[in-house]
Design a protein around this nucleic acid. Structure first.
Lengths: 324, 324
DNA sequence: GCCATGTAGGTCATGACCTGTCCTAGATGA
DNA sequence: TCATCTAGGACAGGTCATGACCTACATGGC
């Protein structure tokens, strides 16, 4: 059944390999005549996939970059690699592609064979903490559920731990998943409280959609991100960091990344760093990893943290008195 | 042309969305009769894609997890997110899926539209250094080229900086790209030197395939990874770390990840960490991020590094004397 | 300069199969 | 109980995919 569609998919899969395929070899693999292969390649081209052909004795076909993304045909290991990569990316929303990576993760996990899902879990558990700071990492599966419920307009029930440790059960209509700083937030309508609320994703436990589809509620504001930012600003203080770094501005900007704030040169050997510091631990480790001298002017909390860190490092570095 | 294939692909794309699609809506979107939609869904099922259907008044179709990976149909942003995630994953080969992620990256970058490629470059530049340690990060594009040349058996020409800074041009026949520790190595036959060599990927500059395809050379050993490890062992010393951590063993194992080594409990409050420490900087930062007391017994180099780090942190934490 | 080997594409006969339009059966929630 | 969805059989008509054979053209090795 639908012989040709399966063959076109297989052809697309073969052409995505980074090598050149002679038409005769493709014909052999797909068990059709070379003429049909040529026709299939024409078909792919008409569908918008730019199949490049190099002529001559050592020629062959390969898929080039075109105007649109062709369907990606992955083997098991590649799928696992992508899932793991997306999970770590979702756990560290520092990009400009936060929600896209969660969407892609949702897509992938929806169709990921169960045996692979297990491998993803194991590998992600071994990988995520390596990149994490002191932040409580978000469970990427939670993010996937939240994003799915928001996109699907499904009611969502979950347990929520507030800042003081109290746990409540919530019934909500999710509207959008957004990032602010280095955290994920769910903007949703809380049905019991009859108002819009902002939930920190890392405090949401055991979310599951109720299956009830609801019409889109009028959002509280045009821009969900702005609404979340406003809510946060009123509750949690955001530190503003000012530091002098003894390294040329260009190097600092390159090694800290764009999200760290602005870097202004002071002279050829040092520069000033200014920016929001949503988590002190993360910024401290970044600064230390630069490997150069630096001074922190603001905030005092960061100085205190660095002092404690330095003392702990010094204690750890002492020649041990115990044997082992 | 090839109307049905395009429709099946579009159908697959729609079904990958995390929502349920009634057959009538699918028929409307794809501009065919509902009967044809049902037939298409049958076809997909025969091709191995498990389309789940919920019956009843609010029913619909959706794609579930099956035995094999269906072709992933991504929009622009999702493709960019995956590419960025894979780049950072490739730059930090700590997993068990190193080469798979490079393969997937090669596949993706081969077909990524150029306008998206640009966005990937920008975002990756802003993201990679955030996660990087003091290590010189590898250029993921270099990795992609290396892996492609090895898979395609193409001769590869590149510039190589040795440890003392000398730069030479090499003409090689790449055999395999492997990871050892937290670095990438290329195992290749050096044609000018007429012998097998191991190249550090981060020291390879400006690689480009010559286009010359060569038959597979007899590899120096069964296992490329073992060969690389042997080569490295003879040249670079590998530290063995021993540390006492004042935290329960379970927590340490979970937060350091599997690649950090073995964790044995000492008592309820502390444990012993043993393992290879390929890079001191990385391990030091991981230990500090645990947020607990710890003592380093071996190697002395790690103690020295921690001491210097602690002193630097202490200096940075002092109340600044300059105004700003 | 020649030849082998690859892509590119035209034509034609045959028959498979895709499609829309009927139809009925079964499941499910309001 | 009824509306609404999935599931699937029967049938007629015509599109179009396939293989066989052909020529034209590009390229690299000899």
């Amino acid at each position: 059944m639908s012989d040709m569609s399966a063959r076109l998919l297989a052809l697309l899969s073969l052409l995505q390999t980074p090598r050149e395929w002679p038409g005769s070899e493709l014909a052999e693999r797909l068990e059709v005549s070379p003429r049909t292969i040529r026709r299939d390649i024409d078909r792919l081209r008409e569908l918008g996939y730019p199949v490049q052909a190099t002529m001559g004795a050592v020629g062959g076909y390969r898929l080039a970059a075109g105007a649109a993304m062709p369907p990606l045909l992955l083997d098991d290991e590649e799928a696992v690699a992508i899932a793991v990569g997306l999970r770590t990316a979702a756990a560290h929303p520092v990009d400009g592609i936060d929600e896209a990576s969660v969407r892609a993760l949702a897509k992938l996990e929806q169709v990921l064979p169960s045996r692979l899902r297990h491998r993803v879990g194991v590998l992600a558990a071994a990988t995520v903490p390596m990149l994490a700071g002191a932040e409580p990492p978000v469970d990427p599966r939670t993010l996937v559920v939240l994003a799915g419920a928001a996109a699907n307009r499904e009611r969502l029930r979950f347990a929520y731990r507030s800042g003081d440790g109290a746990e409540t059960r919530r019934l909500t209509e999710p509207y959008r998943l957004v990032t602010a700083g280095r955290r994920w937030y769910l903007l949703a309508y809380d049905i019991d409280r009859d108002d819009w609320r902002v939930f920190r994703a890392d405090r949401i436990g055991d979310p599951h959609p109720t299956g009830v589809r609801v019409p889109a509620r009028v959002p509280p504001e045009q821009d969900p991100a702005a609404f979340v930012a406003a809510k946060l600003h009123s509750s949690a203080p955001v530190y503003e960091v000012v530091a002098t770094v003894r390294l040329p501005a260009g190097q600092v900007a390159g090694r800290l990344g764009a999200a760290a704030g602005t870097v202004e040169p002071i002279d050829d050997h040092s520069c000033r760093l200014r920016g929001p510091a949503d988590t002190l631990e993360w910024l401290a480790s970044r600064l230390l990893m630069l490997g150069c001298e630096f001074e922190v002017h603001e905030p005092p909390e960061l100085r205190a943290y660095l002092g404690a860190l330095g003392a702990r490092a010094a204690r750890a570095a002492q020649t041990p008195t115990i044997t082992y």
